[in-house]
Amino acid sequence: EADPRLIESLSQMLSMGFSDEGGWLTRLLQTKNYDIGAALDTIQYSKHPPPL
């Protein structure tokens, strides 16, 4: 049985245009305790590393 928090967070992320191919988004949301903001921060950080 999927956690209702996961279903809600995942559906919101999917509606933003993200995909869960391979389950990466599910794993990220689980790691971030279903916090969409924290997940988005992680995605943003990985796409744009800080300048040295």
Rank of each mutant, 00 (worst) to 15 (best):
E1S: 05
E1R: 01
E1P: 07
E1M: 13
A2F: 15
A2T: 15
A2C: 07
A2Y: 04
A2E: 14
A2M: 15
D3H: 06
D3R: 02
D3G: 03
D3M: 03
D3W: 00
D3K: 01
P4D: 04
P4A: 08
P4M: 09
P4Q: 08
P4E: 09
P4N: 13
P4I: 09
R5W: 01
R5E: 08
R5M: 11
L6P: 03
L6K: 09
L6A: 08
L6S: 04
L6M: 06
L6C: 02
L6R: 05
L6G: 04
L6V: 06
I7L: 10
I7M: 12
I7N: 12
I7D: 06
I7W: 11
E8K: 14
E8V: 09
E8M: 09
E8D: 13
E8H: 10
E8L: 09
E8T: 12
E8I: 09
S9P: 11
S9I: 04
S9Y: 03
S9R: 08
S9H: 05
S9K: 05
S9E: 01
L10Y: 08
L10N: 02
L10F: 02
S11N: 09
S11F: 02
S11I: 06
S11W: 06
S11R: 15
Q12S: 09
Q12R: 11
Q12H: 13
Q12N: 07
Q12K: 15
Q12F: 11
Q12D: 07
Q12V: 10
M13I: 04
M13Y: 03
M13R: 00
M13G: 04
M13E: 01
M13S: 01
L14H: 05
L14Q: 09
L14V: 12
L14C: 07
L14A: 10
L14T: 15
L14M: 14
L14P: 01
L14G: 08
S15Y: 09
S15F: 07
S15C: 08
S15K: 15
S15L: 09
S15D: 14
S15W: 04
M16D: 06
M16A: 05
M16N: 07
M16K: 08
M16T: 02
M16F: 12
M16Q: 06
M16V: 04
M16E: 06
G17Q: 02
G17D: 03
G17M: 00
G17P: 00
F18N: 04
F18K: 02
F18C: 02
F18S: 02
F18P: 01
F18D: 09
F18T: 02
F18E: 03
F18W: 09
S19C: 12
S19A: 09
S19P: 02
S19Y: 10
S19N: 10
S19I: 11
D20P: 00
D20N: 11
D20I: 00
D20V: 00
D20Q: 00
D20E: 01
D20W: 00
D20M: 01
D20A: 00
E21D: 08
E21Y: 04
E21Q: 08
E21V: 05
E21G: 04
E21K: 04
G22F: 01
G22V: 01
G22K: 08
G22P: 02
G22D: 13
G23S: 04
G23H: 07
G23T: 03
G23V: 00
G23C: 04
G23E: 09
W24G: 09
W24E: 14
W24R: 14
W24S: 10
W24F: 11
W24N: 13
W24I: 12
W24T: 12
L25K: 03
L25V: 08
L25Q: 02
L25A: 03
L25N: 02
T26H: 02
T26P: 02
T26C: 03
T26S: 10
T26K: 03
T26G: 05
T26D: 00
T26Y: 03
T26N: 00
R27L: 05
R27C: 07
R27E: 12
R27F: 01
R27N: 11
R27G: 08
R27K: 15
R27Q: 09
L28H: 05
L28G: 03
L28E: 05
L28Y: 04
L28F: 06
L28W: 02
L28I: 08
L28C: 03
L28S: 04
L29I: 05
L29M: 05
L29Q: 01
L29W: 00
L29H: 07
L29V: 03
L29A: 01
L29F: 01
Q30T: 15
Q30P: 05
Q30L: 11
Q30S: 13
Q30R: 11
Q30A: 07
Q30W: 03
Q30E: 14
T31Y: 08
T31A: 13
T31I: 13
T31D: 15
T31C: 09
T31R: 13
T31W: 06
T31F: 07
T31G: 10
T31S: 15
K32T: 11
K32C: 10
K32E: 10
K32N: 14
K32M: 10
K32L: 10
N33W: 01
N33S: 08
N33V: 02
N33A: 07
N33D: 10
N33Y: 06
N33K: 12
N33R: 07
N33G: 10
Y34C: 13
Y34H: 06
Y34I: 00
D35P: 00
I36Q: 05
I36N: 03
I36R: 04
I36Y: 05
I36S: 07
I36T: 07
I36P: 06
G37Y: 10
G37C: 11
G37V: 10
G37W: 07
A38C: 09
A38G: 08
A38F: 03
A38W: 04
A38S: 09
A38V: 08
A38T: 06
A38K: 14
A38P: 03
A38D: 09
A39R: 00
A39S: 11
A39Q: 03
A39I: 05
A39K: 05
A39Y: 00
A39G: 02
L40R: 07
L40P: 04
L40E: 05
L40A: 04
L40Y: 06
L40G: 04
L40D: 04
D41W: 04
D41E: 13
D41C: 08
D41G: 07
D41R: 11
D41T: 10
D41K: 15
D41A: 11
T42V: 14
T42A: 14
T42W: 11
T42Y: 07
T42I: 08
I43S: 04
I43C: 06
I43G: 03
I43L: 12
I43E: 07
Q44H: 13
Q44N: 08
Q44L: 10
Q44C: 08
Q44E: 12
Q44Y: 12
Q44G: 14
Q44W: 08
Q44S: 13
Y45S: 15
Y45T: 15
Y45F: 13
Y45A: 15
Y45Q: 15
S46L: 13
S46M: 10
S46R: 14
S46I: 07
K47V: 10
K47P: 14
K47L: 09
K47R: 13
K47F: 06
K47T: 10
K47A: 10
K47E: 14
H48K: 15
H48D: 13
H48S: 13
H48C: 12
H48L: 15
H48M: 15
P49W: 12
P49T: 13
P50I: 12
P50E: 14
P50T: 11
P51N: 15
P51G: 13
P51S: 12
L52Q: 12
L52P: 02
L52S: 13
L52E: 15
